[in-house]
Write a protein that binds this DNA or RNA. Structure first.
Lengths: 245, 245
DNA sequence: AACAATAGCTTATGCCGTAAGGAGTTGGAA
DNA sequence: TTCCAACTCCTTACGGCATAAGCTATTGTT
């Protein structure tokens, strides 16, 4: 499932995101048994455990001892709930970054990468038409504070692509391992055996791929992330240096 | 929806992917009214029009004048159908690449980027536990043929992240525009007005973000892709040069 | 005491993937 | 020629989903 942000009533969503205090007259009916925060926490817990596909209004309600429909008093639709969860899960990232810009950018990328791995469902929420909540905005602001003054737009975009792409690969890998019960090694050896039988001329047709098994083990993927980040930062340093001298 | 590849019977899937000819005895029952290829084409057409969320077995069957259940004779599950569609949609990419490695890598990335934009649902199929069909394998092999002999693993990973990340942003943006009926400009100005009302101190709290509106218009996103690719290739050239001299 | 507003329930609608099983069609064996 | 095994494709059914509609019970205000 891919979720596009901000489809509901934008005013209501933004008010919830930025927590404009309810300005209406004092509430009249029965006391609310829930809060938006409690629903958020429950939703994040469910999504952490079962992914965004396992996040149903029923499941969130059940975790709070309520029915699915009870949530609709607090949150307009499931989409808005995910928007709120998304922003909330970005809270408290990178409070302080080192002074050296290259180290700082690297630290930023690693921290975001780790956050994505802690809440893999974040990667299923679209990055276009941004939610623009306070916490994700802070993450972006921190990066902009340390980025050298060159190709900012392209660098931001490339960094997000790299971090999200790598995290996605690792998260999906973990999900596949957990969901199927077969480890990477098991899967790969079984797959290799089958391929040998079915496509015996594989090594002839794809000599370089055959020499580079496209396995995305956790460790290999992390190294690839570090290496890719290094490449990008090299390029950035190069361009910044060229510009300044 | 995110789809993990290769969950079904791996042998059957691989046989379908690589089209090991049906080796059994001559068919006995009524003549098949469908073919796997026809189902694939119909599935791709549906996914192109309505995305992977709109891809239901009922919809694919309907396009072929059949019921949903008729498809299950040819394809074990929906998942396998998506795997087959995924590989098929990679066919015929980058038949020839220029001699200069930097130009070649750039051409490869641009071609893949365009392919993703033509079939945005490709981006919703997981890249972990690869489908390993012949067409996607060819795409990887072409890249490996032209890549300089440095940090191959990291470069491949970073390139895929960049291409997929950028394409995802653009595709999601288009999807949001098409789905909501509001253009980027409309959306952005409306959102700005609301933010001004709800968060009047935004520019004070996020001065750099405020100076860099995180809009992902088609054109801006394409430029960001080109710029990010340049950064990465600069870094690669840098490392390759350092190694060779 | 009466009322307006609100919370949270039950019910219902129309989607989805696909399991189960039945009806009709075909080629080969007897 | 007859008959059956193999095969295609259908109908039906199940349990899941988001959420619309409408009901009841609770609360603060008048």
């Amino acid at each position: 499932m891919v979720v596009y942000a901000g489809q509901g009533d934008p005013e209501r969503t933004l008010a919830l995101l930025w927590r404009t205090p309810g300005d209406g007259p004092p509430r009249r009916g029965p006391k609310p048994a829930l809060t938006v925060d409690a629903i958020l926490a429950a939703g994040i817990a469910v999504a952490d455990e079962s992914g965004l596909d396992g996040l149903s209004m029923r499941a969130v309600g059940e975790r709070l001892g309520k029915t699915a429909m009870a949530l609709y008093t607090y949150v307009p639709t499931k989409r808005e709930l995910i928007d709120l969860m998304y922003d909330h899960a970005h809270a408290g990232l990178v409070p302080g970054l080192p002074g050296d810009w290259r180290q700082a950018v690297e630290a930023w990328a690693v921290a975001l990468h780790e956050r994505y791995l802690r809440h893999p469902w974040l990667l299923q929420v679209s990055h276009a038409r941004p939610v623009l909540g306070p916490h994700e905005q802070t993450v972006l602001e921190r990066l902009l504070e340390v980025l050298p003054d060159v190709a900012v737009r392209a660098t931001v975009s490339a960094l997000f692509s790299l971090v999200r792409g790598s995290a996605r690969t690792i998260a999906e890998n973990r999900g596949a391992a957990a969901g199927t019960g077969t480890s990477d090694q098991e899967w790969w050896t079984a797959r290799s055996r089958l391929m040998n039988d079915l496509v015996p001329d594989f090594a002839d047709r794809f000599p370089r791929s055959a020499g580079l098994p496209p396995v995305a083990w956790d460790k290999a993927a992390r190294e690839a992330f570090a290496g890719g980040l290094n490449l990008l930062l090299d390029g950035l340093e190069n361009q910044a240096g060229r510009r300044n001298g």
